[in-house]
C-alpha cells in the first residue's frame, strides 16, 4: 500500500551561502516550507512553516513577530510556541549546520530547541 520509493524532496538539503541571507525579517523558502532567521548577534535558525494543527502554511508577520495560520487562526510566538488557537504543539525548529563547501545545510530529521543558533 505504501510506495517503496518516495519521489519527495530530501529531508536534508543545502539552502545556499550564509551571505545570501539578510539580517532582520526571515527568509521564506517556499519549496521546503521553512523560515530562515538570521540574527546579528545570535546567528542562523530555521523554523518549520507547517502549522502543527492541520498542515497549513503559517505566515510570519513582521508587525508583531508572530506566526499566523490562515486555516484555523492558530498564532505562534516568535519562539514557535502556541499562544492562541487549536494548534496542539509548537512549531518545529530544525538543525542548521555549515556544510564543507561553506553552504548552510538544514536537516529536517534533526529537531532542535528554539534557542538553537548557528554562528557563522
Amino acid at each position: 500500500m505504501m510506495p517503496s520509493v518516495f519521489y519527495e524532496p530530501p529531508q536534508s538539503f543545502k539552502i545556499g551561502d550564509p551571505a545570501d541571507f539578510a539580517f532582520g525579517p526571515p527568509t521564506f523558502l517556499a519549496d521546503e516550507k521553512i523560515y530562515v532567521f538570521r540574527d546579528r548577534e545570535k546567528g542562523f535558525a530555521a523554523a518549520s512553516a507547517i502549522c502543527t494543527h492541520l498542515g497549513c502554511t503559517v505566515s510570519h508577520f513582521q508587525s508583531d513577530g508572530k506566526f499566523h495560520c490562515p486555516c484555523h487562526g492558530s498564532v505562534f510566538a516568535a519562539d514557535g510556541s502556541v499562544i492562541h488557537g487549536p494548534a496542539p504543539r509548537a512549531l518545529q525548529w530544525f538543525e542548521v549546520t555549515e556544510a564543507r563547501d561553506g553552504q548552510l545545510q538544514i536537516d529536517k530529521d534533526k529537531i532542535v530547541p528554539p534557542s538553537y543558533r548557528l554562528m557563522v
Partner: peptide, 19 residues
C-alpha cells in the same frame, strides 16, 4: 501552490461543519 495557503482556507461546504 504548496507554499501559499489561501486565507481563509476552507474545505467544501459539506465539510465546513467538520472544519
Amino acid at each position: 501552490n504548496p507554499a501559499k495557503t489561501p486565507n481563509p482556507a476552507k474545505a467544501p461546504w459539506y465539510f465546513l461543519g467538520l472544519q
